[in-house]
Design a protein around this nucleic acid. Structure first.
Length: 296
DNA sequence: GTGCTACCTGG
DNA sequence: CAGGTAGCA
């Protein structure tokens, strides 16, 4: 278990079937929830389910004989909210756009990961999470976000979670107080981005309307956002399926699977990926990440 | 434009 | 060293 737990035993509302058709496996559900896109899902040993949230939503999820079930801990959350967040509807259309038939590497990844989903996460909290992510492992990112939510977020009644602070409130937090959440040098990036967004409150909402390259350039004007974090934001927070974040794991696995790329740098690898994997490359990226992460 | 290196923290 | 970025040769 992690050093921050869910606290006292959580009592859940009724379970309901979220999705009658089988979709996830235990493995793909887990990788979807805690495999590096989201950092606010926790395994509840007592109830044997995942509990987590986004924005002010908190839900429990489990597989019951392949059927996905949910228990809604926040009353305003609807089943459609959950399905929208989980993004299951996008998976098959995106798989259909990948060149699995032409590329045996992809085809073999598809066998294992075809029911992995890319979540539709709120852009604001995706930004916070991925500014924290630089030079950090998933566990440490989870700790930082947990600290931020406890310290500067709002307790969500009837649930073990607090919301993450919004950017407006982060603008009023000193860098020293941010550092106290174990953010290290990222505290300056958070403070700088909060100040930027205070001056341009609509900035994050304008990203949607831009083409991929322009959206990436715009995001990189934010302190703490470079090419890799920008791609994470575009893929996880804005639904650009073509965005292809290249981190150390992806760099390693790409160079293993495609030896000609041995001398390419990360930006070059991202360009290769957009050409080779195409419009849904981001999904291929997540398959590779899951493969690398679970084989380590 | 490309290629280093320092930067916080903790598993 | 770890799911990078910023600042400078």
């Amino acid at each position: 278990m992690e050093k921050f737990s869910l606290g006292n035993a959580v009592s859940l509302p009724a379970w309901e079937t979220l999705c009658p058709e089988p979709f996830f496996t235990g493995e793909t559900l887990k990788e979807t929830l805690i495999g590096g896109q989201a950092f606010r899902w926790f395994w509840d040993c007592t109830n044997e389910c995942w509990i987590g949230g986004w924005a002010s939503h908190v839900v429990a999820l489990r597989l019951n004989d392949q059927r996905l079930e949910s228990a809604r801990l926040t009353s305003q959350t609807t089943p459609d909210d959950i399905l929208h967040y989980l993004g299951i509807d996008r998976v098959q259309p995106w798989i259909d756009q990948l060149p699995c038939n032409a590329d045996p590497v992809l085809e073999s990844l598809r066998q294992r990961w075809s029911s992995l989903s890319l979540l539709r996460q709120p852009a604001e909290e995706t930004l916070l999470a991925f500014i924290c992510s630089s030079n950090k492992q998933i566990l440490q990112i989870r700790t930082m976000l947990h600290n931020l939510s406890i310290r500067f977020g709002t307790k969500i009644p009837g649930t073990p979670l607090s919301t993450l602070p919004d950017w407006k409130s982060l603008a009023n937090v000193s860098e020293a107080d941010l550092r106290a959440c174990a953010l290290g040098y990222r505290a300056a990036h958070i403070a700088g981005t909060a100040a930027f967004l205070r001056e341009s409150p609509d900035f994050l909402r304008t990203i949607n309307q831009l083409p991929l390259a322009d959206a990436s350039d715009a995001l990189q004007r934010l302190p703490g956002v470079g090419p890799k974090v920008a791609d994470c934001l575009l893929l996880f927070g804005y639904g650009f399926a073509e965005a292809f974040p290249v981190d150390t794991w992806i760099e390693k696995i790409l160079k293993e699977k495609y030896p000609d790329l041995a001398k390419w740098n990360r930006v070059q690898l991202a360009t290769f990926a957009r050409i080779h994997f195409g419009k849904a490359g981001g999904l291929a990226q997540q398959w590779m990440f899951a493969e690398a992460r679970t084989n380590k």
